[in-house]
Design a protein around this nucleic acid. Sequence first.
RNA 1: GGGGGCAUAGCUCAGUUGGUUAGAGCGUUUGCUUGACAUGCAAAAGGUCGCAGAUUCGAGUUCUGCUGUUCCCACCA
Length: 871
Amino acid sequence: MEKTYNPKNFEDRLYREWEENGCFKAVRDDDKVPFTVMMPPPNITGKLHMGHAMDETMQDTVVRFKRMQGYCALWLPGTDHASIATEVKIVEQMKKDGLTKEAVGRDGFLKRAWEWKDAYSGKIVTQLKKLGSSCDWSRLTFTMDEKCSKAVREVFFNLYNKKLIYRGSRIINWCPCCKTALSDAEVEYAEENGNFWHIKYFVDNSDIALEVATTRPETMFGDTAVAVNPKDKRYKHLIGKNVILPVVNKPIPVVGDGHADMEFGTGVVKITPAHDPNDFEVGLRHNLPVVRVMNDDGTMNALTGKYDGMDRYECRKKLVEELKELGNLVSVEPHAHNVGHCYRCGSTVEPIVSKQWFVKMEGLARPAINAVLDKKITFVPERFAKTYYNWMENVKDWCISRQLWWGHRIPVWYCADCGAEICSKNDVSACPHCGSENISQDEDVLDTWFSSALWPFSTLGYPDDTSDLEYFYPTDVLVTGYDIIFFWVARMIFSGLEHMRKVPFRDVLFHGLVRDEKGRKMSKSLGNGVDPLEVIDKYGADSLRFSLLQGVAPGNDTRYSDTKVESCRNFMNKIWNASRFVIMNCEGRKVKPVSEVKLLPADKWIIAKLQAAIRDVTLAMNKFELGVACQIMYDFMWSDFCDWYIELVKPLLYSDDEAKRDGAVSVLVYVLENALKLLHPVIPFVTDEIYRSLPNTDGTIMTKEFPRYNAKLAYKKDALAFEGIMDIVKAVRAVKTELDCPPAKKVSLYIVTENKRYISSNEDSILKLAGAKDIKFICSAEEAGANTVTKVLAIGTLYIPMGELVDFEKEKARLKSELEKVTAEIARADGKLNNTGFISKAPKKLVEEERAKLNKYIEMREKILAQLKTL
RNA sequence: GGGGGCAUAGCUCAGUUGGUUAGAGCGUUUGCUUGACAUGCAAAAGGUCGCAGAUUCGAGUUCUGCUGUUCCCACCA
């Protein structure tokens, strides 16, 4: 083995081997319990970012853990066609070649899109492999694969026939840049500084004017009424009269409607049903005409007269000027308000009336809410359930049609002759009503998230009754970011319940955003994104994986930092070198099962620590507390195993006693092997590479059983006793440092104790680790002679002759400060034990422990006092 | 307007049924080439756990209010 950890030597090789040996393949096995995870399919538009790296690492860790525990673990990978995002990119790409969608046509465009898909989805797969993802690549699914299309059509067909999908003219969010409708979830709001334009609308045949205030004057052409509050005494009498729409000079009615807020602005609202969701509702209530005045590209239409064809903002400017000239403009006041933007291209969206397809959410939402309420699905951490309820309870119908070409085309055909509308699972070539072949399919495609919503079952063969679907569905855990609760998680839940009659997954494990070192969101515009591939190249995949999990709490945002990855790389190096040491010492030795080894106190101690680690890691993993699990492993491996145990066995390894050497090596191998198995789900590469070099192992670690807690090996009392030995070592080291004594200088140890035999049996360890030359058991302090430093420990009192290094004043001060500490502890324990409430109400075990502690401290205090007297 | 998160060592963060003297990494100080590792070892300094109450024998942990900060949702034309 090389002297330092060098992941480049083995990561790619191991991954190839795992793959070639079919280690990731999940085949139905009725003797095993299934464990299923569906990978949130990355978009084919981009490359892997840190968010993906965290998401995939968490999934891989959970899946590898379960696989080792004996589950039939399926992790199914995929990629998403990302309808709008991809289409935007392809349009950009074509623009460079001087081409437009219209120029290449639908077929030409789709050809380009598929080429894009072929080029990019492969890249993402390569990147996922670099991370070590143990997914079943034979099942790699693309959201526009044949099987997904089949599922999409089935679901659409069923919902259509249940009247849960309908087509209608409603207010939707329109992106004038992407030229498509968007769902509510696809609009992002940001506060912008705009203006409030106050405009006079004169009452017909009168000098009286109503003053309306608007932030979007250009929509005025679509005004079909002016509303006042029916309770508003100022305007009540005008209800039913007409006002003249300026510029257009058209009379429109004054209506009374509660929508007009008496307190806000002038209390008069212009009503533009075609361009505002609230106005649309008012329009419905008062039977107002809906007049659209804007084109799909954000320019004004013919109804705006001279503004026809002008951009919406240009029109705004010119119109305001005209109003000013006409004397209708009363005032302009600055006004900050929230403006909606397209989540893909950032353009300001226009609320526009448009004929679109919708999913009726009433009826779908309730069961989806109940599934979480009834704990059929558990959110981790729980708090995200609130976000989910809140959204689900207020959800509006889902606009699913997009005026795009890249995506699942809506499976509805229209007959040009008889006007029939035909929804079908299969392509239709003739009208079933009139037989006409003059029919055409709906031009629009479906929202990307419509197919994503079916992901947990479309990937397993739905709508067919496949064996996989029966075995692997419902899936077990969905791992994803909290930012797509609405887009995806919620929609998978109601879709699973509606179409499969079962929840799509039992747990949802949320993670937060990976931010940059300063806590900012990683983004292209800031240029602060860190490429996981570069990090892997520099530090190795295991280092990155560990750094993304260690000490991270579920659902919390984290900061990426090079220094953290570096410290994790150091941990890998530590594991590497400790293993190298163990393997080196195995040469020519008999490595026996630990059950055949006569265990020494230190052995029992490390085995006890190992068992505790196994127990705690398993508990943490089962609760998805991956950050905690990593911390436990880190501490066990580094502090317990490397810093203490390896140092403890060195004297044995260098002794001439063959049996002792064999025993030491056997325990080393046993502990290391188990530790590697514990660590494997998180850091698969380095653990497997080492595992293959261990004696008595064969094949890969990834198919071995995950360690099980064994109560017989817990050795609680032995472990506690051994801590006493460690206390002696720590005390000597501290004294040396304090007195500026070189660590290499050997000292003698005088000990007053009732544990002579136990200390003697660990003498070698103490001498080696403390840097001592001998241990002498004495009965009183005097025997230790003058110039000693005293350490009062639980296992006994330690006297260390330090010769001229001893400064009596300092020693006195040191003992006094120790006395203070012990006295404080006595006061604390005493206080507790004198509290009748504590005695009567606290668990007995706790009271006893406290009492034992008190006794221990009292004893220590007496010893310290005695020592102070002699000084 | 509604709902969350966060506030713990100089910095970044853990701390999940309330119970040892509140932890880690990085940084800082001191000393070490101790035959796996200087990507290392040892020792140490550093915290009234945002503030004020409440519940409890016992609160970093539960509840209420407040302050600061941040995110999400809704949205007034």
